[in-house]
Amino acid sequence: MPTWGHRPVTDTILETRGLTAGYVPDLPILRDVAIRAARGRITVVIGPNGAGKSTLIKAIAGLVPVSAGTVTLEGREITGLRPDRMAAQGIAYVPQTDNIFRTLTIRQNLELALRRAGPGASGRLAALLDRFPALAPKLGDKAGTLSGGQRQFLAVAMALAADPRLILMDEPSAGLSPRATREVLEMAQALAAQGVTILLVEQNVKAALGIADHCYILAEGRNQVDGPARALLDDPVVGEIYLGGRRAETA
């Protein structure tokens, strides 16, 4: 259970309560998970492999069936909404891998993501390119030709197309070089500074805690500890589990 929840309710944009979910009925991967994401902040979920971090984010995005519990966005329940309806609710989800359409060009990827934007879409495309200038010279290339870091940028650009209030990011640093990881996480920080709420799942604990405001630790599909990211970074127990071991070396 959250040990740190003293912020006013109005500040919470996303909340899960008692969330139980899994790919196969009767075999929940998540059990009774409760998290909150505060508006304009970066909330990070960490935990060992198989803790259910990705499942949590997918369950929120409507990609994994929820068998019990609720997901609320600004007080409205959105539990188990179809993934293609999530965008209209203001939620964007950036998968860990395969998060762009390799066979479409970069422009086509962006236009696909923008197609709900209606009139003014061309202005929006220009705005996205302003934010991600690295993509501009490659608009006509197939997205499959992009490097790992550029793919993450494109994926985030697509997520931003629908002007979301909340972005769910599943391990954006997976498979990236340290430099690209830093760039992606800095971008997340910049987005949060502009008022977008970010819920992040990360293996790269040190880097994630470095940019996050609040952190939840999951293990075996359940909440373990949570608290302000900085406090956890300095916490000797967390340090021993996550920062002293092999994981920290790879971070």
């Binding site: 995005a61 990609l63 179809r82 993934p83 293609d84 999530m86 965008a87 209209a88 989800y93 998968p95 395969d98 998060n99 762009i100 359409f101 390799r102 066979t103 479409l104 086509q108 990827n109 236009e111 696909l112 993501a113 923008l114 197609r115 709900r116 697509m158 629908a162």
Partner: peptide
Amino acid sequence: TFGFALRAVAENPALAQVNGVDL
């Protein structure tokens, strides 16, 4: 964009849904 959506579904249906495509 309809054509993009169709190709997107062909390549990766789950990702297409995440991008607001009605499967």
